[in-house]
């Protein structure tokens, strides 16, 4: 894949983030091209989740810039709600709204943020839910669904308004091993459709098969970046080798 001649969707320039004395992100540079799938790996505490949260403006960066399709979203004058509406996020713990039916969870942003007519939003939502095998759950409340089904609904909620970028933050970490597959299959479908994704995961074999590029985060920095073949087959940094040996050890 040649990412160079595609438009850049996301660009991080020297992003820092501190929580008190805890320097979590120490100058992160990263570019994601349109239709590219970038997978972030690394130990717990390496800054993966914080990275996701700064991009979504849940955390404010302490230095550097983040550009979304060329717009500086770290500019204080920027309307954060408008930026967030352009990015789809899927969380580790699904975070569906328990008081809303599946259909209302999925169409909420379309109706209330993007001003799409309710019946149009409903038709589109039902189409997506049926496509991903959730057609019978449309009118159920989230607590009637299995974890895998809830996470698939959460993904549909995130892609409902065609975001420019999808952030997937360890979306299978809270799932029963039996249910991981159905969620990852959905992500594969999204990749096939050309979604641009940044994904943090502990599923190494999945990372290897779905990623265009792998970013290995180590103590707040992307220590090594490369194709899956290169990172998994011929890691250059000793920290990368050590991490991979630990996570792939049976």
């Amino acid at each position: 894949m040649n990412a160079a001649n595609r438009a850049t969707v996301l660009e991080l320039q020297g992003v820092h983030k501190l929580f008190g004395d805890n320097h979590v992100l120490k100058g992160v540079d990263l570019e994601i091209a349109s239709h590219e799938v970038v997978v972030v790996i690394g130990a717990s505490g390496s800054g993966k989740s914080t990275l996701m949260r700064t991009i979504n403006l849940i955390e404010r960066v302490d230095d550097g810039r983040i550009l979304l399709s060329g717009d500086d979203i770290t500019d204080p004058a920027v309307d954060v709600d408008k930026v967030r509406a352009r990015i789809g996020v899927v969380f580790q713990h699904f975070n569906l709204f328990p008081h809303m039916r599946v259909i209302d969870n999925v169409t909420l942003a379309a109706r209330k943020v993007h001003g799409i007519a309710p019946d149009v939003a409903r038709d589109r939502a039902i189409g997506l839910l049926e496509k991903f095998g959730l057609g019978e759950k449309v009118d159920d409340y989230p607590d009637r669904l299995s974890g895998g089904q809830q996470q698939r609904v959460a993904i549909v909620r995130a892609i409902m308004t065609d975001p420019e970028l999808l952030l997937l933050d360890e979306i299978t970490s809270a799932l029963d091993p039996m249910l991981v597959g159905e969620v990852l299959d959905l992500v594969r479908d999204l990749k096939a459709q050309g979604s641009t994704m940044l994904m943090a995961t502990h599923e190494m074999s999945f990372a290897r098969s779905v990623a265009d590029r792998i970013v290995f985060m180590h103590s707040g920095r992307p220590l090594e970046v490369g194709t899956p073949e290169q990172i998994f087959g011929d890691p250059q940094q000793p920290e990368t080798r050590e991490f991979l040996a630990r996570v792939t050890h049976r």
């Binding site: 709600d81 975070n95 709204f97 942003a109 943020v113």
Partner: peptide
């Protein structure tokens, strides 16, 4: 708080988040 984060991540404003996500669950 994750409910609030999820709502804000969808682009809902603070007021919309309170009205549609936080208050209905709080009332229950």
């Amino acid at each position: 708080p994750s409910q609030r984060i999820a709502a804000r991540s969808l682009g809902l404003s603070h007021a919309q988040t309170l009205r549609m996500v936080v208050i209905p669950q709080a009332l229950r």
